[in-house]
Simulated scan of single mutants.
Amino acid sequence: MRAGGVRTTVAGLVLAAGAGRRYGCPKALVELDGRLLVERSVVTARAGGCHPVVTVLGAQAGAVRDRVDLGGVMVLDNPEWATGMASSLRAGLVALRATRSIAVVVLLVDMPGVTPEAVRRLVALAAPDALAMAGYGGERGHPVLLGRVHWDGVVASASGDVGARRYLHERAADLRIVPCGDVATGGDIDTEADRDPFRRGGDRRGGAGQ
């Protein structure tokens, strides 16, 4: 992408800092089909057209770094991870201010059903003032696209585990819902049983290109 002759990009932001209390370990360290969820998320973001990719770690960050090669990824340690997802979102957006990215696609590490094609559909809408999120039937979910002009507002309003939800709700008239149910699934993994639908041989919308 070029804006005024300057090369611009759409960043990817993988939020992977939580402790995964219900699961029993951080979701970043959960393995699915031989690959950790954090690695799958990074691959999905890259294959979907995001650059740079930022990954925010928190709980057991050292163990994640030891088990996954995150070379080429901007990795942030969030010391405030226990306060909720919003702290990781804020950390990622603040770090991205130093880039030329016009927008960012936010992915959650515990949603392996998100595919590169779903990411590409949001990347295609990228603009500094864009707001978009994936739709799965009648449900809204991730990934979420935040244009650069919205980053400061999200940083100021995000708290706890709400993330950008409040900010997006207040700007519902400007929010575009992008149908992704034909190429991805919007469910997350909270327990070991939740992994089964995403395993190889299940619903391949959750594994295409990963």
Results as ranks from 00 to 15, higher is better:
1 M>K: 10
2 R>T: 14
4 G>C: 11
5 G>I: 11
6 V>I: 14
8 T>R: 15
9 T>S: 15
12 G>F: 05
15 L>R: 09
18 G>S: 14
20 G>P: 14
27 K>F: 12
27 K>I: 03
31 E>A: 08
32 L>D: 02
36 L>A: 08
39 E>F: 00
40 R>V: 06
41 S>K: 05
41 S>A: 15
42 V>H: 02
51 H>R: 12
54 V>K: 00
56 V>T: 04
59 A>E: 09
64 V>Y: 09
65 R>Y: 01
67 R>F: 00
69 D>C: 01
70 L>C: 10
70 L>M: 13
72 G>H: 05
74 M>A: 07
77 D>C: 01
81 W>N: 07
83 T>S: 14
89 L>T: 02
90 R>H: 06
90 R>M: 02
93 L>Q: 03
99 T>E: 12
100 R>T: 09
102 I>P: 03
106 V>A: 05
106 V>H: 03
107 L>D: 09
108 L>G: 12
109 V>S: 01
112 P>M: 00
115 T>D: 05
115 T>E: 03
120 R>D: 03
125 L>T: 08
125 L>H: 07
132 A>H: 01
133 M>T: 03
133 M>Y: 02
134 A>Q: 10
138 G>W: 09
139 E>R: 15
139 E>P: 00
142 H>W: 14
143 P>I: 05
143 P>S: 02
147 G>E: 04
148 R>K: 12
149 V>E: 11
149 V>F: 04
150 H>N: 07
152 D>G: 01
159 S>E: 15
167 Y>W: 12
169 H>T: 11
170 E>P: 08
172 A>M: 08
175 L>F: 03
176 R>Y: 02
178 V>Y: 11
179 P>K: 14
181 G>F: 03
182 D>H: 15
184 A>D: 09
184 A>C: 03
187 G>W: 11
188 D>T: 13
189 I>T: 07
194 D>I: 13
195 R>S: 12
196 D>T: 14
197 P>D: 01
201 G>I: 04
205 R>E: 10
206 G>D: 08
208 A>L: 11
209 G>A: 11
